[in-house]
């Protein structure tokens, strides 16, 4: 599978959140009005104006305190359920060169909730008029030979971006090293998505949607079913 991919090595993410701010800066997104809710994670969740969010979780594993950081963003699925659900290339399409899953202003006309529900990673967010937004892989930067803003700003090398083959190789190589000290280390859904996370603990300790949620498979099945009848519905729509 050609195109681009991210490799996010959470073992060296320090949650400096440079990525989160760089994302807002490049996309010229406004700050949300936040309060301290008893955690350093802020804003509380992804939103129509927050495409990238470092999630903070304090957990105790085998009696040892861990502070887990998870730079959450769209996974740019190889077979994106959202794209299938939308079924409208003018609203959601896959960039052929990079594989980036891109949302346009026409997402406003979609069944917003259906698209949101279709995402196994709980990523898309709507504004009041129903337009959807999420990480666009900084497609405008990438097309011009630049790294995505979040990758460019990362000081430790936790965020990586490049040709999918290279990223997969990098991820596997790093996994082999990390496994020596963290036997539970694994890559999350590497065969299905373009944003490959390396984690050392159970994925749900980082985030409920760190790996594809099981409920999403039902949606996928429903989508697959719909796809089967798609030519017919299109035809009907065109009539």
């Amino acid at each position: 599978m050609p195109g681009k991919s991210f490799f996010i090595d959470t073992t060296i993410c320090t949650a400096c959140r440079g990525c989160q701010v760089a994302c807002k800066q490049w996309h010229d997104l406004p700050a949300e009005k936040t309060v301290n809710r008893g955690t350093h994670q802020n804003p509380a969740d992804l939103s129509f104006v927050t495409y990238k969010l470092v999630r903070f979780n304090e957990v105790v594993v085998d009696g040892k305190l861990k502070w887990l950081f998870f730079p959450d963003q769209c996974r740019h699925c190889l077979e994106p359920p959202c794209e299938m659900t939308a079924d409208d290339p003018e609203a959601i399409f896959r960039d052929p060169a990079t594989g980036a899953v891109v949302y346009t202003a026409k997402t406003k006309n979609l069944d917003t909730q259906a698209v949101i529900d279709s995402c196994p990673y709980n990523i898309p967010r709507a504004c009041e008029d129903g337009t959807l937004a999420k990480c666009d892989m900084c497609i405008d930067r990438v097309e011009n030979g630049l790294l995505p803003a979040c990758v460019k700003t990362c000081p430790t090398g936790a965020m990586n971006f490049g040709d999918r083959k290279e990223m997969l190789a990098l991820a596997k190589k790093r996994l082999d090293v990390v496994k020596k000290t963290h036997p539970k280390a694994r890559l999350l859904d590497p065969d299905d998505i373009r944003v490959i996370y390396l984690v050392t603990e159970e994925p749900n300790l980082y985030h409920n949607f760190a790996v594809a949620s099981t409920s999403a498979f039902n949606v996928s099945r429903a989508v697959a079913l719909r796809r089967l009848v798609r030519p017919l519905t299109r035809l009907t729509a065109n009539l």
Binding site: A15, R17, Q20, V21, K24, A31, T34, N36, H40
Partner: peptide, 23 residues
């Protein structure tokens, strides 16, 4: 904190940074 600089004079008026550490 990572998100503010010294007394915050250059970062507190910056909405993206205040979003991260507001209080």
């Amino acid at each position: 904190v990572s998100e503010h600089w010294q007394t915050g004079l250059m970062t507190r008026p910056q909405p993206w940074l205040l979003e991260l550490e507001p209080q």
